[in-house]
Design a protein around this nucleic acid. Structure first.
Lengths: 206, 206, 206, 206
DNA sequence: AATGAATGAGCGTTCATTCAT
DNA sequence: TATGAATGAACGCTCATTCAT
């Protein structure tokens, strides 16, 4: 995590550094991102950089941290108290907030995708670590509950289905987040409806 | 493509180079993969490397080519004549062969994933080019046909569903290919059944 | 052009680098000049070199720039206002200053010659560009004017003669600049007299 | 010089190697010319190359040797018995034959220029060695004789003038040899007349 | 706290030459 | 005689990191 010296910086300067870092991590993997580029576009000296951060990884983790913080602000009531709401409503809210985050923060989204798509990179393990597993567990709990309440049929494999929903949601958002701005005008609502419809009904003719 | 000098090499030596390259490309993106590492673990000199291949990209493409060749051997009759078989049978075969390839060739699978997950890299365009788009189109054709034959209900959004099935299949396989060997003992058949069941029936209680 | 970091260097160190570079460019064409040689004889690290200069070309251009600056100091009044002086006086001054520059700065001269003698090299175009053509034109103007004033006979081919005078002057100086120091004791004045006598006999009006 | 193995080669193959070498030396300095390029365009193996020639220099010298042989065929009677002909006639013949050689053998000319323009390169010394000095001496003898016969005025500096005529002739030809083919149609005769006129006015006895 | 000069390992790539077959 | 695989030094250049000021 950044050193005190970084937090003591005037807000403006700190933001400039963050912007420069995001610009670089948006367009480069962690390995190929260049500190030289970052300090040059942030207009700080090399020495300063290493007085703010331990190393490149430290900065990167900080950016990811900021992203997570921002993402938190998109949490809905249904997501905060999932057991007090319908299963499909919760799932819909999760995707809705994911899509809106992607729409409003395309730069964070791009950085996040670059990270998520490289699970074999050492830094992935360090940052994501068991996060994915926890997410799976959460989905499983939601599914079990939904089966109890009769929202979801009982003859599914819960663990497997949890994973699939998680993956599908991620890909659903990732896919769209690659679209250009104009495509977004189509309306998130409609897109989300299709996704939920697919999920709720399946596709086989009855 | 590799030069003649490479193909003239004794089988054993050639394999050693391939192994070294795969080891490197498994664990590194194209950019951060190091030729020095490869030649050192293949125990060949730098000069020799460049007598076998034009450059790093040449070697990489060769590895991908080998992967594709290997993958070809997993094609089933249903995949070759998809319109002569049931829709779900075709989808099942595709996933089945994908899973088996992943199980039997985990190293290729890892390399392939690294490539597929970095669509913004120049080499992705060069190798994959419009492959993904073609895949989408193929799924759409299969879906349209399945709607005609009454296998699939008609009130779906074909384009959207095609993408989702493609993504779901990919992730389904990728996910499993990340698992350690022991998980595989569970049995591919059962895993595939779950996946197909999810796809065929959806999860909503009736 | 060199980066700020280079100009911020202590004079002594900067000079050491310039010396090392000149030593290398004196004895090698641009292509075969080695940065490794330069940094080794300047006793700086590779990293430092690239903090001073963008690349080899950047350094080379800087050396050429220094040479041009130095050469500027040899310009005479007759060269600055050529039309206010006699034609042969102007030509004499040009050769005189050329010779003196060559005598006082043999290393620059050697580097300059290597450049001038390789007009097909890309860097020649970049540095010299149309300079030669402009020189020809200048000589033509001087010749035309000299014909008007009756200094030079009118039955010469101006364009052709301009080229020849230019070439002859260059070669005259180049030739001498290759001589070892002892030969210079002969006296520039006498040498120049011979040259001018040759020229005057060739084209002076009777 | 090439090894016997080279001379034992069938004429056709030998010529192919020569062609490939000329192609490379036309467009590259000795240092940057690549043996790989040569053997590739000559379609011989690397091993063969080194069985025909000691090294790159050996091949290069051979090409230069061929050029000299070819140049010999342009010698005129006046050049063979210079003392039996008028001085200006001899000089004219030398330039005439030089121009015609350049016109008929542009590739040799290009290679020769590249060599002549880099007198500081080790290979220059090795090949040209005292050749230039001998040429100067020859010009001096011609000049002395011409002064005796009254063709040339006696108040010139013989050594200096010899050099200048040599340089002027060389540059005269080099300059023109850079011209494109179409310019040659202008007529060598006229060009040569201009040159001789310049020279004669300069030193001819009145 | 801020600077920026210094570092050297590392990168992908090219090279002329050797030598076993 | 002919081959072409093998070599390793050298190339220009980038990098994250250190440290004296």
């Amino acid at each position: 995590m950044p050193k005190d010296t970084f937090y003591n910086l005037p807000e403006e300067k700190r933001q400039k550094i963050i912007d420069a870092a995001m610009l670089e991590f948006e367009n480069n993997s962690f390995d190929s991102a260049s500190i030289n580029q970052i300090i040059s576009s942030a207009q700080i000296s090399k020495g300063s950089f290493y007085q703010y951060f331990d190393d490149k990884k430290d900065l990167y983790k900080h950016i990811i941290e900021l992203m997570i913080q921002k993402k938190m602000t998109y949490i809905t009531p249904a997501m905060q108290n999932p057991f007090a709401h319908g299963f499909f409503e919760v799932i819909r809210d999760m995707n809705q907030s994911g899509l809106e985050f992607a729409k409003n923060h395309p730069r964070f989204t791009k950085i996040g995708n670059l990270l998520l798509r490289n699970p074999s990179h050492p830094i992935y393990l360090e940052i994501i670590s068991g996060g994915q597993e926890q997410a799976y567990k959460a989905y499983e709990m939601l599914l079990n509950r939904a089966i109890e309440t009769g929202e979801v049929r009982s003859n599914i494999d819960v663990a497997f289905t949890a994973k699939m929903i998680f993956k599908l949601s991620s890909e659903f958002i990732l896919e769209e987040s690659d679209l250009t701005a104009e495509n977004w005008t189509e309306g998130l609502a409609e897109l989300l409806n299709k996704f939920m419809s697919l999920l709720e009904n399946g596709i086989k003719a009855k």
